[in-house]
Design a protein around this nucleic acid. Structure first.
Lengths: 193, 193
DNA sequence: GTCTATATTAAGATAGAC
DNA sequence: GTCTATCTTAATATAGAC
């Protein structure tokens, strides 16, 4: 086999793992080439925009994953508590139980394109809105729901930083466990509209 | 003036600002040269170990700042609440009211030396210990004090990530404001030993 | 659609003049 | 103690063979 190939999905998963641990500036096309088995020229054939186009495809794949595994389940039937618990389990897996950084954190460090920064901002705002909506539905007034959603994401992001620096996953696992009680009011539940 | 010069303090402050916003891989010696007005060869004269030695000097300067402005004030006389409030104000300034990232977050992204990673871990553990000690002194049992200290740092780090991605400093300013009540028990105070 | 080969620019780093 | 000049390697990117 003189020529090697690799599916876009497998390639982007490898690229995701590299970008989320080393950042935009920390991943070179040579490294992407070595990890995928494809020559650099082949990467340019698939992604004519070069590294920026690769990282944008990676981020879009993450956004799609969040839509399916986080945003959609939060809109399903069932009690808000139950929906949040399901999503918490998904997030635990996405972050490999705290052993993988958040790509939004790592890629938001300057170096990437304006397009990348904007996409990350929009994606994080969507996450914030999804958490706010479920908290509101559990019975909280909007301002409180928004505040709890912020606190939840702040604590997920912050605990992943601690996990990376200290090698201690406990704070992350703790936040994931607390997520249902953090995001849903324990009082009376409002009927779903 | 054919030759230019710059004090170590001013140079390291410029370097700190660059490293905390762009990360280790995102700052080149050429950029450090341009920002300081010194040629690359002059930087190697001052820091023979190259970029790693520069970043280690930057980190040591931050550690020294924390010793003077965070750790020492937390050991002073006065109520724990008051001491934490003083330190909170210092931290607000260090992070430029939420407009500058945490260097521990940014530099812990892979790319730097093992020495750098170890130094960041030790520094963050010292911060955790300082917060744990003041929380314990305010009357909490050790396990609770440690948990509150973790939560405080998690929320500082996480809110700085949100500030960077969303351009919204409110969550950071909120955590800084909450710091005294987060880290000190509101009940009876134990007498200082 | 992947390859080899190459172009161009920038990276980290050093030698030696002043 | 800073400079100019240079070295070596690696970065992004493209041309053209297969």
């Amino acid at each position: 086999m003189a020529h090697k190939t690799i599916s876009d999905e497998v390639f982007l998963d490898k690229a995701l793992d590299m970008f989320r641990s080393r950042g935009y500036e920390g991943v070179s096309l040579r490294q992407l080439s070595a990890a995928s088995g494809l020559e650099k020229a082949s990467l340019f054939y698939r992604y004519p925009g070069g590294k920026n186009e690769v990282v944008m495809a990676v981020v879009q794949r993450v956004i799609d994953w969040f839509e399916v595994n986080v945003f959609a389940p939060l809109r399903e039937e069932g009690s808000p508590q139950k929906r949040v618990a399901i999503v918490a389990a998904k997030l635990r897996i996405f972050y490999h139980h705290g052993t993988r950084p958040c790509i939004t954190d790592v890629l938001s460090i300057a170096g990437g394109s304006e397009e990348l920064a904007t996409t990350l901002r929009v994606a994080l705002e969507a996450w914030l809105k999804a958490f706010t909506d479920v908290a509101k539905e559990s019975g909280m007034p909007l301002a409180l729901a928004r505040s709890k959603a912020e606190e939840a994401i702040v604590r997920i992001e912050g605990s992943l930083v601690l996990a990376r620096v200290l090698g201690n996953r406990a704070p992350f696992l703790n936040v994931i466990k607390l997520l249902p009680e953090l995001l849903t009011s324990k009082g009376e539940r409002l009927p779903r509209r």
